[in-house]
């Protein structure tokens, strides 16, 4: 299915958020995730299903003021 990952259209075979994180090569312990604007805690990723058009944000620590 096609989803939106960090603002980019992505075709994925993953059906859960946890599988998507692995498939896309993210370091699962070093990122925080949101689905359709809602935070998804790390331990809830495996039980969080994706749907076509899902908007996923995968965020990491960055410089900030």
């Amino acid at each position: 299915m096609q989803i939106d990952l960090n603002g980019t259209p992505v075709v994925t075979r993953a059906t859960t958020l946890a599988a998507l994180i692995t498939e896309q090569g993210f370091d699962a312990a070093s990122v925080a995730t949101a689905l359709d604007g809602q935070f998804v805690p790390r331990q809830a990723r495996a039980a969080t299903s994706l749907h076509p058009g899902a908007r996923i944000e995968v965020l990491a620590p960055m410089q900030g003021g």
Binding site: N6, V58, L59, P61, M62, G64
Partner: peptide
């Protein structure tokens, strides 16, 4: 120190 969250690069 202050930090932010941004899309993983």
């Amino acid at each position: 120190i202050t930090v932010s969250l941004r899309r993983e690069g």
